[in-house]
């Protein structure tokens, strides 16, 4: 456990000046402020639609969620998985890392865990900024009805689902980035995967849930369904695609360990 903790602290220390780390903070901030700005500058149009409070929240958080879940989340995961591993590829530090008196599995697990934590931070901030900016909009445009519905449960559930749905992609990309030090291969495969995921997720292909890249899209599609529920916060978290994502994550995480112990040493 101590090895794991130490390695994790070191991962933070190493990457605190890298884009992968800051993107986890800047991405949600930028996207949420853009969406909020849109709702602020276009407030007349939105008000003319006379949405009930729930629907207003749905419109608003759906705007961030839509861009984010379909495109930005997969690409952030791809880039970040690359970045976390590339820090060792680029500096040729794998062997030094594994020559430290630390448990090998902990070193690898800490790296993976660090990537998971970054996604968590990123999505947590998305939810938090959505919530905060929603209430800020209420202050700026008093005619809005954001204050008449509490979206926290919906936000938490959606972003938890997205978080879990991204773990499958993360594990694939993590292994690809372990194997190859260059950017193009994991990026290329991830790009094709993401496009495939979006298409299969959206056309509602029966087996789309087997492709990890489609999981965020599937989660978002289920959000459209949630609107129709009498209580929109009632949708289940652990659906088929979430289980699949978690199974992918677990299996690939274990495979990745064997790859890293074999590969890093040459």
């Amino acid at each position: 456990m101590r090895s794991l903790y130490i390695s994790l602290v070191s991962e933070f220390y190493k990457s605190r000046k890298t884009l992968a780390f800051w993107a986890a903070i800047i991405l949600p901030l930028v996207i949420c402020s853009l969406v909020a700005f849109g709702f602020y500058s276009g407030s007349d149009k939105v008000l003319n639609m006379h949405y009930p409070p729930i629907m207003l929240w749905f419109r608003y958080l759906g705007a961030a969620l839509g861009v984010m879940g379909v495109l930005i989340l997969p690409f952030y995961v791809i880039f970040m998985a690359f970045s976390v591993n590339n820090i060792e590829h680029k500096n040729d530090t794998w062997k030094t890392l594994f020559a430290q008196p630390l448990n090998k599995f902990s070193i690898y697990a800490a790296k993976y865990l660090y990537a998971v934590i970054l996604i968590f931070i990123c999505l947590f901030l998305f939810a938090a900024f959505t919530f905060i900016f929603g209430h800020l909009l209420q202050v700026l445009v008093p005619k809005y009805t954001f204050n008449q519905y509490d979206p926290s449960l919906i936000l938490i559930k959606f972003y938890t689902k997205l978080f879990l749905a991204s773990l499958g992609i993360l594990s694939i990309q993590f292994i690809l980035s372990l194997l190859w030090g260059d950017f193009l291969k994991p990026m290329g495969i991830g790009f094709i995967g993401t496009i495939m995921g979006i298409i299969t997720g959206n056309v509602g292909w029966k087996y789309a849930y087997l492709i990890p890249y489609s999981h965020p899209s599937l989660v978002l599609n289920s959000s459209a369904g949630a609107k129709k529920l009498s209580n929109p916060a009632d949708f289940p978290i652990f659906t088929q695609e979430i289980y699949t994502s978690l199974i992918y994550a677990l299996v690939l995480f274990i495979i990745g360990y064997f790859i890293v112990t074999k590969k890093s040493i040459k």
């Binding site: 820090i87 040729d92 530090t93 030094t96 020559a99 430290q100």
Partner: peptide, 17 residues
């Protein structure tokens, strides 16, 4: 490994630090 220090091939240094 606790009793060993090593410099293997190129020094392993994080360039951005």
């Amino acid at each position: 490994l606790k009793r060993v220090g090593a410099l293997v091939e190129q020094p392993a240094i994080y360039g951005h630090l």
